[in-house]
Write a protein that binds this DNA or RNA. Sequence first.
DNA 1: CTAGGTGCAAAGGGTTTGCTACAAC
DNA 2: GTTGTAGCAAACCCTTTGCACCTAG
Lengths: 152, 152
Amino acid sequence: MGGHGHALETLKETGHRLTPQRLLVLEAIAEGGGHMGAEEVLARVQKVYPYMDISTVYRVLGLLEDLGLVTHITTPEGTRYELVRGGERHHHMVCRACGRTWDMSTRFLADLGEAVWKEYRFRADMAHFTLQGICKDCLSADNNPMSGGETP
Amino acid sequence: MGGHGHALETLKETGHRLTPQRLLVLEAIAEGGGHMGAEEVLARVQKVYPYMDISTVYRVLGLLEDLGLVTHITTPEGTRYELVRGGERHHHMVCRACGRTWDMSTRFLADLGEAVWKEYRFRADMAHFTLQGICKDCLSADNNPMSGGETP
DNA sequence: CTAGGTGCAAAGGGTTTGCTACAAC
DNA sequence: GTTGTAGCAAACCCTTTGCACCTAG
C-alpha cells in the first residue's frame, strides 16, 4: 500500500465516488514508482482485476490529474503518468542499455532550473525529470560510442 | 531563400533523388522557421503543390532526419520538426500552458551533462532534450501557481 | 531504361467518446 | 432511488505501410 490515503480523501471531498477501479489505478501508479504509461497501469491493475478497461484507466488518470493527484509528461516514448508526492523530489537517470535507474542529486537540476530562469524567465518543471543515457557500468562493458552523447 | 542549398548536396551525395516534393518540404521547413508539425509542413507545401500527400511529408522528413538535416522534438502538442542549421545547435523549452516551443542555449545542458558525468560517470543523452514548464508570457498572463515548479 | 519515389488507400497504435447497464452513495 | 461510473465498441487522431504507377538520373 502506498501513501495515497490522502488521495482517497481528495476524491470524496470533491464529490467523486470511491470505486474499486480508482483505488486500483491509484495503487498501481503508487507502487509502479516512476513514470508509467497508461498501458502499463492497465496491465498492473488487470493482474488483480482482469475486467479493467483501458478507457477507464484513461478516465481515472484524467480525473486524478484534474484533482492534482497525478501528473503526466510527454516523452518520445509516449505519455507517462505519475503520482504527485508532496515535497518528494525524485530525479532519475535511466540507463538505456541496462534499464536501471540511478538517483541524481537535486543540486544539478537546481542549477539548470535557476540558470534557465535567469536567462529566459522560463519556469522549468523539474518535478518529474528523467535523464536518459548510458550508465558507467554499461559504458565500460562495451565501449559504447553513442554518437555525440557527451556534453553537447 | 533558405540556406538549404547544402541540403541538396547532401541528398545527391547520399544517392537520393532530388524530387520536387523534397525541395518543397525543405523550403517549407526552412521558411517556417522551425518547430513545425507534419500537418503544417503539408499545408505549406500544398499552397504550391496541392497533390502533396501527408505520407510523403513523413517520408521526406524521416529521410532528412536520417541525413542529419532535420531534427524533431516531442512536445505535448505533438512532434515538431526543424531544420538543422550548422553550429546553431540548441535545445528546447516547451510551455505547458500555451504550447509554444522556445529555444534554449546548449550551454545549460552542457553544464548539466558535464556535472553528471563528473559525479556519476553517467553519459547523459542530450539529443532531443526538451524541458517542460511555463514560459514568461504565460507566467505573467495569469500568476500561475504551478505546484512546486520553481527551481527545486 | 530502371531503381527509387510518389500518391492513394488502408492499416496501426494510442487516446477519446457514446451509450447502456450497473454500483456507490 | 439517483446519479456518477464502468465496460464495451466504435470513432478519432497521428503516423506508418503496401502497392501500382510514375519520374529523376
